[in-house]
């Protein structure tokens, strides 16, 4: 599983906003180009980004193994044809190039995940998106971070209780609706208590945020983001 890893690499010292910019720029240009030269340049950039965040490529690939199944499946599906020649290499190659650029996009986002704590991303969201939508998005994301382990424990408890009562031998719909109903009622009980607690603590549209600032390092990275976005139009 990919998560934030405290470290002192170049990527860790950058402002989250410039890193988000680079990711979006990289994705935009990778989605626009599948030529051999473009793929080579994108590979080099991706490798540099991974190096800057000291991401282990093997760990990142393992974290994205489910996506890799689909990426590996695509060229096979594209190549298979009904009737002669049964497997069309040209189609498979086009699809393989397309899959490869997606792999690069995934690896670049692994660098962001490893080098950025959630609270910094939250501050970046709240400062970049103006007004109430930004506030709700920022607070909502930190609530998800807070409640994810709690709800995972709830779901585990429900499944254990079901298994103890041989609930795992029942029909699929029965099991799905039991987990869904119990998970949702527990979650909404928590949400209602949370809402009461937030109101008691004066939940406001204008809270105080952690300090974020661009350093000298951030300007070249921002420039790279702009170049990447513009290169999508080439």
């Amino acid at each position: 599983m990919l998560t934030y890893d405290p470290d002192d690499t170049l990527a860790h010292r950058l402002d989250p906003r410039s890193k988000l910019g680079v990711q979006i720029g990289f994705a935009a240009t990778a989605l626009a180009h599948t030529g051999s030269r473009a793929l080579l340049i994108l590979s080099v950039i991706a490798a540099l980004i991974l190096l800057a965040a000291r991401v282990s490529v093997l760990r990142a690939l393992y974290a994205y193994r489910f996506a890799l199944v689909f990426l590996g499946l695509a060229p096979l599906l594209a190549g298979l044809t009904l009737g002669s020649p049964w497997f069309d290499l040209g189609d498979a190659e086009t699809s393989a190039r397309a899959s490869y650029r997606v792999l690069l996009i995934l690896l670049v986002s692994a660098a962001y995940v490893r080098s950025t704590p959630i609270r910094a991303s939250r501050a970046a969201i709240q400062r970049t998106i103006p007004g109430k939508p930004g506030q709700l998005l920022g607070v909502g994301v930190s609530l998800i971070f807070r409640f994810l382990p709690v709800l995972q424990a709830d779901i585990r408890t429900i499944r254990d209780a079901m298994a103890a009562r041989l609930g795992d031998e029942r029909g699929v719909v029965d099991r799905a609706s039991t987990i869904g109903l119990l998970g949702l009622t527990r979650a909404f009980d928590r949400a209602d208590r949370l809402a009461l607690a937030m109101q008691a603590r004066c939940f406001a549209w204008n809270p105080t945020l952690p300090h974020l600032s661009f350093s000298r390092l951030d300007y070249p990275v921002l420039a790279l983001a702009v170049v990447l976005v513009l290169s999508a139009l080439l």
Binding site: T3, A27, F66, A67, L106, V108, V113
Partner: peptide, 20 residues
């Protein structure tokens, strides 16, 4: 932004542009 909520504990902006 990196909370592992996507299927298979995946996270990251890349997944939003990925195959699923």
């Amino acid at each position: 932004i990196g909370i592992p909520v996507f299927a298979g504990w995946e996270a990251g902006l890349g997944t939003l542009f990925g195959p699923t």
